[in-house]
């Protein structure tokens, strides 16, 4: 490959933006995403946010669906343990996540592609940093092996 072609392919790799699906709880991490924007914390445009009323609503099925439709990473986020607005929705999230994590791992999907984080509405910077870190990790890994043919 000529030096020029190498350079273009390098920029192309760098230019590739992963698609990250972030499930956010209405009462915390969704607010966190909002705060991130308002606080003007720099973050890549890789995240697609799906708002749910509580992290406990996130069915493992939603996560599988996101992967199968082409997500390069899926983030499960919710209120800090003890702060769930529906008493213990996030405790249930924790249990479901344990199963999910195992299934995704056994399936041979890199662990960076599925992550759990508790982020409150005031933690805008934490949200922005999280998206930035995950984006960098996924850029290194490249597109998800579960992505359907023809989906960018």
């Amino acid at each position: 490959m000529s030096a020029e072609a190498l350079a273009t392919s390098a920029t192309q790799t760098n230019a590739w933006e992963p698609k990250i699906i972030a499930f956010c709880c209405n009462w915390c991490s969704y607010g966190g995403a909002d705060s991130a924007g308002m606080g003007r914390f720099q973050q890549p445009a890789s995240a697609r946010i799906i708002r749910v009323m509580c992290s406990g609503r996130i069915d493992p099925l939603h996560v599988f669906n996101a992967f199968l439709e082409g997500a390069d990473a899926v983030l499960v986020t919710g209120c800090h343990i003890g702060d769930c607005h529906y008493v213990n929705g996030n405790d249930k999230t924790k249990i479901k996540y344990k199963y999910l994590e195992n299934v995704v791992h056994e399936l041979g999907i890199e662990k960076e592609r599925l992550q759990l984080n508790w982020i409150s509405a005031s933690e805008g910077e934490k949200f922005a940093n999280f998206i930035r870190d995950v984006t960098a990790q996924i850029k290194k890994l490249g597109p998800s092996p579960l992505k359907p043919e023809g989906v960018a």
């Binding site: 493992p60 599988f64 199968l68 199963y99 399936l107 092996p145 579960l146």
Partner: peptide
């Protein structure tokens, strides 16, 4: 017709325990 069968993915998870 996904890259992994959704039917089996759901069952892999539901039967894990």
């Amino acid at each position: 017709a996904y890259k992994m069968s959704m039917y089996h993915l759901v069952r892999f998870l539901h039967l894990a325990d």
